[in-house]
Amino acid sequence: MSRFPAIGEHAQHPAYGVLRKVTPVASVMLADNPSIMTLDGTNTWLLRAPDSVSCVVVDPGPLDEAHLARIAACGPVATVVITHGHPDHAEGARRFAELVGAPTRAVNPALCHNADPLHDDDVIAAAGLRLRVLATPGHTADSLCLLLDHETGKAVLTGDSVLGRGTTVVAHPDGKLADYLNSLHRLADLPPGTLALPGHGPELPDAAEAARRYLTHREQRLAQVRTAVDELGGSPTARQVVEVVYADVDHSLWAAAEWSVEAQLEYLRTEN
């Protein structure tokens, strides 16, 4: 869960239930779970080298039997990876593991099934590919990205750390803004032209450039929050700050905005 999309994005999407090839080694299937927080739905990624029979599945998504069955039919599945523990990415993982008999790996040990938890710089070798784990906490404490360096090109699966559209919520108190800024700097250092394969929204041609845009956006929001705190005086609540900083944003998104503002206020208190 994570972002601030435009309103009115909930019509039936033509990509539901369809496996779409994005690169020679990465395909995506969109889960039918659209909402204010999930955009058109969760992207479930299937990764396999051109000569591999098996695949790696990233973020099986919600507990939707039809979606999980369609992904399972694309197997065999060598391993399952979860980018973070929010239900729109991980709720269906245990059921999916039962369907395909594959281990499930994540940073959080509670999300792992017949496998060890993942750590920064771990390498997952499966389906003819090598995926390097980048620990990218901030959206959540357990957020990770997966760097895929194949002869056909470089890509990074970003989960909710970078989205194909909109901005990411720092899910306070689990998510920390200081961690998120550090993670964005790490993504901004990726080689130019590294394709971003996000957990929601369309793929982006340059993950590093997207991360730099996010950093600029965060700096602007922090400046707005600082100004709002000064204008409001005392110790304003997150809701009071939201009403000032997000006055031009649809009110249906204010509850999500409060998460990020709580994280920003905590960051400013620590910074001072």
Rank of each mutant, 00 (worst) to 15 (best):
R3D: 02
F4G: 04
A6Q: 10
I7F: 06
G8A: 11
E9R: 15
E9K: 10
H10Y: 14
H13R: 02
P14D: 07
A15V: 06
G17N: 05
L19G: 02
P24K: 05
M29H: 03
A31G: 10
D32K: 15
S35A: 15
I36H: 05
I36Q: 09
M37Y: 13
M37G: 12
T38P: 13
T42C: 13
T42F: 06
R48T: 01
R48M: 04
A49N: 03
D51H: 15
D51C: 01
V53R: 02
V57P: 08
D59N: 15
G61S: 06
P62W: 02
P62V: 14
H67N: 04
L68A: 11
L68H: 05
R70M: 12
R70D: 10
G75A: 07
P76Q: 05
A78I: 00
A78D: 14
I82E: 02
T83I: 04
G85V: 08
D88Q: 12
E91G: 00
A93Q: 12
F96Y: 07
F96L: 07
V100R: 06
T104E: 00
R105N: 08
P109L: 09
A115K: 10
H119D: 09
H119A: 08
H119P: 01
D121Q: 14
V123K: 07
A125C: 14
R132P: 07
G138T: 12
T140K: 06
S143Q: 09
L146D: 00
L147H: 08
L147Q: 06
L147T: 00
T152R: 06
K154D: 03
A155L: 02
V156A: 10
G159F: 10
G166W: 02
T167G: 00
K176L: 09
K176A: 14
A178N: 03
D179A: 11
Y180A: 11
L184Y: 12
H185I: 10
A188P: 01
A188N: 02
D189N: 14
G199Q: 13
P202Y: 08
E203V: 15
A207N: 04
E209S: 13
E209M: 11
E209T: 11
R212I: 10
R213K: 07
Y214S: 08
L215Y: 01
H217Y: 15
R218M: 12
L222N: 06
Q224H: 04
A228V: 03
D230F: 08
E231P: 01
E231Q: 14
S235H: 12
T237P: 09
A238D: 09
Q240M: 13
Q240Y: 11
V245D: 06
A247Y: 11
A247K: 15
V249N: 02
D250V: 14
H251T: 15
W254H: 15
W254F: 14
A257W: 05
E258Y: 05
W259I: 10
E262Y: 14
E271K: 01
N272H: 10
